[in-house]
């Protein structure tokens, strides 16, 4: 084997693959007068930053990538819980706006017509309706949660399939896989 190849193969170790995360000591957030999220990182001010989840379904408050508005990465937060309470509140507010996803609490009816699935659901106390096409693509199931994406791209979450009533589950089951 070529020595240089051996060297490069040996240099790939778990240590070299580690990612650097930013700590609350050098990074803090604030709300701009216009209602956006700003950040101070290593003494530098970023008047508007964007938070992106690396694992939006399984770990929504971990591995948060922070970019500027042009999507240039500034840093990564390993866990939002490492930050003080007030900072966590700002992070959560920004994430909830960016990843807005109403939680479906009951399914009233699902009607199918020509490849369109008309969902009448309840989000809390509010009855809502939406339409899904191409179920295989737009119903995503993880261990216990289901994400429904409607024709416009809006997302609806069933955060815990075990929590919705039996009637709702029975209506939804034929469409899950």
């Amino acid at each position: 084997m070529n020595p240089s190849t051996q060297l490069s193969a040996a240099s790939i170790t778990p240590e070299t693959l580690s990612t650097e995360y930013v700590s609350p000591a050098v990074c803090s957030f604030y709300e701009t007068p216009g209602g956006f999220l700003g950040m101070r990182l290593n003494g530098e001010d970023y008047p508007r930053v964007v938070l992106t989840r690396a694992l939006p379904l399984s770990l929504p408050e971990s591995y948060l990538c922070i970019t500027d508005v042009d999507r240039k990465e500034l840093c990564i937060i390993e866990n939002a819980a490492d930050f003080p309470e007030d900072q966590q509140a700002l992070i959560r507010k920004e994430l909830s706006q960016r990843y807005f996803c109403p939680d479906v609490t009951a399914i009233i009816a699902i009607k199918e017509k020509m490849g369109h699935f008309y969902f009448d659901v309840k989000v809390g106390d509010y009855p809502m309706s939406f339409t899904i096409r191409d179920l295989a693509k737009n119903i995503r199931c993880t261990d216990d949660q289901i994400i429904l994406t409607d024709v416009d791209g809006n997302r609806f979450l069933i955060s815990d399939i075990g929590r919705i009533d039996k009637k709702s589950r029975r209506k939804l089951e034929p469409y899950l896989y």
């Binding site: 701009t32 216009g34 008047p47 706006q97 960016r98 807005f100 996803c101 809006n154 997302r155």
Partner: peptide, 17 residues
């Protein structure tokens, strides 16, 4: 955004939603 959108403007030099 993932499931919503926002209309943004500059009001007297300040970015506002």
């Amino acid at each position: 955004y993932v499931s919503t959108g926002r209309l943004i403007g500059e009001e007297n030099g300040l970015t506002v939603s």
